[in-house]
Design a protein around this nucleic acid. Structure first.
Length: 383
DNA sequence: TCCACTTACACGTTTGAAGGGT
DNA sequence: AACCCTTCAAACGTGTAAGTGG
């Protein structure tokens, strides 16, 4: 990070990833921002070391026509919620500035004005709504969120523009059902480490390496010594079939991710054993570990961060003027489970045409419609 | 020619159904 | 019958490399 900033200064260019410096003694104020948050609610970003490493290099996220997951995965631990109050968790991704970027001579430079951010879709965590106790039981994982550059995409992916800089936002909304999302209080949290530039192909080789080293799906691209990949793959399969330790480690790896409240279900958690297993030389690296890695310049680990659950700030994030120019098509990404929850699995989710508009982002206003009657539903949806 | 973008591909992980054991 | 565990194949998630088009 320091090297990057210094290099930026040397070249007299804009560094899109320069933020507040981090304290190594605590992980509190500079890293989190909130808007209209309940002061009791605290959110801790998981895998913070990994996020910081990506952030230090200038994180990039691939966007594709069909939708691509984010890596690192956005996952948080929440505390301070009221145990019995129901909350819905929403994620959206907003522009950080009004610029378009270009990767030139190993650095990101402003190349012009940003495209209008037309789509303000929210991804609703499929376990929503759930009580505060349920949300706080384990960390909350947004691993099913997909980002796309296809503006015509209708499957609920979050639409972004390539070569633009974005930041995910977590909204904790006091709401017992989807109908009260608009009237519930919004507690919005952002983390500077999660800023990224959307790309259709990685620009920075070091980002590619870091992704390959940490994303289990990209394991096939990790550098292998001597023998060819295919040979090693068959060899590994042979070994795995005869090696209980390997199997247990693999299970633990899977299990560790399922310790989080996954996108898929509250119920599927803790199905795997979470007991610790002796580590052998061929550990399948978890995204939170640094086992068996070699570091390259600019890819140095920062293991000495001390983190505590973050105390929210009272300052609010500022966004470019065009960020509220939402489309009217689909601000929500609701999955099948949520539709099922409301007994609407065979019908389109009724919010699919709701536009939050400019005022309701943080629900500072009470929505005027009473949603208890079908008549008012129409007023609500057709506004 | 450049560069953002798309697509097919190989490789690995995840998921869920099926079957067997207790 | 009701679990639990294992196996296996399909689906899905990756980055790469080659190709496309403006």
């Amino acid at each position: 990070m320091a090297a990057l900033t210094a290099a930026a200064a040397a070249h007299n260019m804009y560094n899109p990833f320069s933020f507040n410096s981090y304290s190594t003694d605590s992980y509190i104020a500079p890293d989190i921002k909130r808007v209209r948050a309940d002061s009791k609610i605290q959110v801790k970003l998981e895998d913070i070391d990994l996020w910081k490493r990506f952030h230090g290099l200038g994180n990039e996220m691939i966007i594709t026509k069909t939708g691509r997951r984010m890596f690192p995965t956005f996952r948080v631990t929440i505390s301070g919620l009221d145990l019995n109050t129901k909350y819905m968790l929403l994620l959206d991704i907003v522009p950080v500035d009004d610029n378009r970027y270009k990767y030139h001579e190993s650095s990101w430079n402003i190349s012009g004005k940003a495209e209008p951010h037309l789509f303000g879709r929210y991804y609703v965590h499929p376990d929503s709504p759930a009580t505060g106790a349920q949300w706080m039981k384990q960390c909350v994982l947004f691993n099913k969120v997909k980002i796309t550059n296809n503006a015509m995409h209708n499957q609920g992916h979050i639409i972004l523009s390539s070569m633009h800089r974005y930041q995910p936002r977590l909204h904790i909304v006091e709401a017992s059902d989807v109908y009260s999302i608009r009237t519930g209080t919004y507690n919005t949290f952002t983390f500077d480490e999660t800023v990224f530039i959307a790309v259709t192909a990685y620009q920075n080789d070091q980002i590619t390496k870091l992704k390959i080293n940490h994303n289990p799906f990209a394991k096939g691209f990790r550098e292998q010594p001597t023998h060819g990949k295919r040979h090693l793959t068959s060899l590994k399969r042979h070994c795995e079939s005869n090696n209980d330790n390997e199997k247990r480690l693999k299970t633990d790896h899977v299990g560790s991710s399922r310790l989080c409240k996954n996108d898929s279900s509250l119920n599927s958690t803790l199905q795997q054993s979470t007991t610790s297993t002796p580590i052998t030389s061929s550990v399948i690296a978890d995204s939170t570990t640094y086992l068996d890695e070699s570091y390259t310049s600019g890819d140095s680990p920062t293991k000495d961060y001390k983190y505590s659950i973050s105390t929210p700030l009272t300052t609010s994030t500022t966004y470019p003027s065009n960020m509220y120019n939402y489309d009217t098509s689909s601000p929500f990404y609701m999955n099948q489970k949520l539709n099922s929850y409301y007994g609407m699995s065979n019908t389109p989710f009724p919010y699919s045409s709701v536009n939050f508009g400019q005022f309701s982002r943080y629900s500072t206003q009470t929505y005027p419609y009473n949603l208890s009657s079908p008549t008012n539903y129409n007023a609500f949806f057709n506004q």
